[in-house]
Design a protein around this nucleic acid. Structure first.
Length: 183
DNA sequence: TTACAGATAGAA
DNA sequence: TCTATCTGTAAC
């Protein structure tokens, strides 16, 4: 199964967030390959989106978010948890899709519901910040025979401070999937 | 130098 | 269901 091409990420962020559902996140480690099905995502639409990191402008941390699409943006939250994002749209758009939950497929012994647990289960940390997802070690691929999905749209989590942006329906998840962090 | 980010684990 | 915790980041 080949990795999704960079063109997949170089599109409308909301569209990418929706199409990422049901895809497989693959991380090749030394002697094992960890795979999880993406069941929950959130779209962050760039500098004008007050809920996005890029709203404060280009900083050391958000640099890769402003970079070209198809790269991993991994940041540390509360100094304890990692969050895994995928950069979307053309360089400078500073848009990204946050992967919030996975359904274990292979070598995932830990729960992966919630952005922090997801990174723990997939062994993703800040060393993966800026990694090219079109590469061979960490990438996203499509299933052979993807089942039909019922997709639910909801407001994003933890962005109450973002005014009108907090009400936008930019969170997507697979309906009735038990691995979604909050149904 | 210091306030803040909002998810997680564990207690109640 | 509620609360303590934890530290890198960026504004001060």
């Amino acid at each position: 199964m080949p990795a999704l091409p960079r063109e997949f990420y170089d599109r409308d962020t909301t569209l990418v967030a929706r199409e990422l559902l049901g895809k497989l996140l693959v991380h090749r480690l030394g002697d094992e390959t960890r795979i999880g099905r993406i069941v929950e995502t959130e779209a962050y639409l760039g500098p004008h989106d007050l809920a996005a990191h890029s709203a404060r402008g280009l900083t050391e941390r958000t640099r890769v978010m402003f970079g070209p699409p198809g790269h991993a943006y991994v940041y540390l939250i509360y100094g304890m948890h990692h969050c895994f994002n995928v950069v979307t749209q053309a360089e400078g758009h500073a848009s990204a899709v946050l992967i919030r939950a996975l359904e274990p497929v292979q070598s995932l012994s830990l729960r992966a519901q919630g952005p922090g647990l997801l990174c723990k289960a997939m062994a993703i940390d800040r060393s993966h910040n800026g990694v090219d997802l079109c590469g061979a070690s960490l990438y996203i691929t499509a299933e052979q025979n993807p089942p039909p999905l019922r997709i639910v749209r909801r407001p994003r989590i933890g962005v109450d401070y973002a005014g009108v942006w907090a009400r936008r329906l930019l969170r997507f998840y697979i309906a009735r999937n038990p691995h979604v962090s909050k149904p």
